[in-house]
Simulated scan of single mutants.
Amino acid sequence: MSERLMTRRPRLTVRLRLTLSYAGLLVVSGAAVSCIIWLVFRIVPNYPLTAANPRDLQSGQPPSRAEILDLVVKLSAWTLGFLALVGLVGGWILAGRMLKPLQEITAAARRAASGSLDHRIGLTGIRDEFTDLSDTFDEMLDRLQLSFEQYRRFAANASHELRTPHAVMKTMLEVAQADPGHQDVPQLVKRLAETNQRGIDIVETLLSLTALDNREVEVDPVDLAAVLRSAWPALSAEAAEAGTTLSSELTESVVEGNDVLLHQVVTNLVQNAIRHGGGTVSVRVSGGWLVVRSDGGILDAARVRTFVEPFAKDRYGAGHGLGLALVRRIVEVHRGRLELAPNPDGGLTATVVLRELGFGS
């Protein structure tokens, strides 16, 4: 970027160019008027001029047409010089006032380029192109600041989560090495496998989130109810192990989507309800809607909004927090929407809305 700026040829500033434009316009307009006056006198017949009042002849002969034309030319030259001066001074002041909002926007852009995203322009006054640009720039800074804050939280939590399984495995291995004769090897292997699988799951989910941002997703007509039925045996087994009552209400609902990714959405939402909800989970599919409702404790709406952020749930001690983040990204890729709402009587309702295909689609 700096090399490109250094290679640019020096140019007149916008303020100076506007000033020259204003002055030039005034001079050209004055010159046009002067030319018209001169032409008028040129086409007037060259009759001898006399005074309207005979008594005025005592002061001398009236001027001839040639003398009048010379006077017009001289006065026009002085007038054009005056207009050029007024145009330069007035144009410089007027251009400065008009470009002041642009200078504020430029200063804010430079601050943002240096890494400061907390400054806002906030132009006031009559709505025009500059205020529109200012509002758009402020909105962009809001989104950038939010994105960077989410990225910092994600990076910090991801590094912590990826470090935790390795630290746990290192500790278990160090204990086993220190006292190998008193170790329950099968139990140790089981715990190592579980901890290693947790790290694998985190890495695979991170890779899935990255892949969704960098590739096109192939879509076909998919029946959401059929997707849920294919995932139901594994989900039922997990619910039974957790002591959770799992029920469903399924209606054929054909949407445009990717079967594998939608299977991931269904699995993650129901697993999240089983693992972090109460003792009852209900699933309903109808009209392009997938609704997963679980009971449990009363949830705060502000806390629920953080559930779709990667690792956000860790702050409340519930899971590694990537499942709902992946669900949200998959739904966004399908041009749908994910809604999380706390139930008045406790628990959470997750709703995925996709575009249902009609019979003529």
Rank of each mutant, 00 (worst) to 15 (best):
E3V: 10
Y22L: 08
Y22N: 05
A23L: 09
G24H: 01
L26S: 03
V27S: 05
S34W: 13
L39P: 05
R42C: 04
P48H: 06
Q61L: 07
D70N: 09
K74N: 11
A84E: 01
V86R: 02
W92N: 07
P101L: 03
E104R: 11
T106L: 06
G115H: 12
L117K: 13
I121D: 02
L123W: 08
L133Q: 06
L146R: 14
F154Y: 10
A155F: 04
L162I: 06
P165W: 02
V168I: 14
K170M: 12
D179L: 05
D184E: 05
D184N: 13
V189G: 02
R198E: 08
G199H: 04
G199Y: 00
I202P: 02
V203I: 15
T210H: 12
T210C: 07
R215G: 07
R215H: 14
V217F: 10
D220L: 10
A231I: 06
W232Q: 12
P233V: 06
A237T: 12
A239N: 04
N258W: 07
D259H: 12
V266N: 00
G279C: 04
V281Q: 03
W289Y: 14
R293K: 14
G297K: 09
I298F: 10
A301I: 15
F307T: 01
E309M: 14
R329G: 03
V331W: 01
R335W: 02
G336N: 05
E339T: 14
N343R: 15
L348S: 04
A350T: 00
G358H: 12
G360H: 09
